[in-house]
């Protein structure tokens, strides 16, 4: 984060949720909220968009299913048709298990990779760890500061919501 910001801690998720709603209503820019576990209602309070990851999973699954089905069909009709006990070459029902498994495999992996790549998370990813207590029991709100003058104002607003340990980088 190259921007100027001010951070504040909370000890409780309900307190945090209330504070985030108030800060948003005041029109303040919340850069990030860091929590030790998923706080329900926070995505709504931060006015986050609905996730598009499920669409990635859907299309990944569709590609997997198509690949699985078409490959089997090609093998048995064009690639190397073999007669198995007089059964039909293009046997749709017996292609289903592999098609299904391929769909699940592709859906799961495409979604997880999309998630990791989008947020630049991965083995050994270089991210800023604000405070080691965040993954334990602290809730942190990062508020952006636009100009020098409103720093005091934001600090007052944060104190009003019951924040502790307010720090800033300006």
């Amino acid at each position: 984060m190259n921007k100027d910001y001010i951070t504040a801690y909370y000890n409780d998720e309900e307190e945090l949720l209330k504070a985030v709603r108030q800060l948003k209503d005041k029109g303040l820019e919340i850069l990030d909220v860091l929590t030790p576990f998923p706080v329900h209602g926070l995505d709504k309070a931060l006015r986050m968009r609905r996730s598009r990851l499920s669409m990635v999973a859907f299309w990944g699954g569709a590609v997997g299913a198509a690949l699985g089905f078409l490959f089997q069909a090609w093998v048995f009709t064009k690639g190397y048709p073999l007669n198995f006990g007089g059964k039909p070459f293009f046997a749709i029902p017996s292609f289903m298990p592999v098609t299904f498994e391929m769909a699940v495999l592709f859906a799961a992996f495409s979604m997880v990779f999309a998630f990791l790549i989008y947020f630049k998370l991965g083995p050994g990813a270089k991210t800023v760890i604000h405070d080691e207590r965040i993954t334990d029991d602290r809730f942190l709100v990062v508020v952006g500061i636009r100009k020098e003058s409103n720093y005091q104002e934001i600090e007052q607003a944060l104190i009003a919501t019951g924040a502790e340990g307010i720090t800033h980088n300006v």
Binding site: F37, P38, L46, F100, A107, F119, L121, G122, T127
Partner: peptide
Amino acid sequence: FLSFGWTGSAKHWSRHETVSLVLAGLAAP
């Protein structure tokens, strides 16, 4: 290294939950 640079950001958590839910939907069948 193993934690993939997890920070606990609200946006990550929200998407993490989506991923878990959809993966559950896939893993169930």
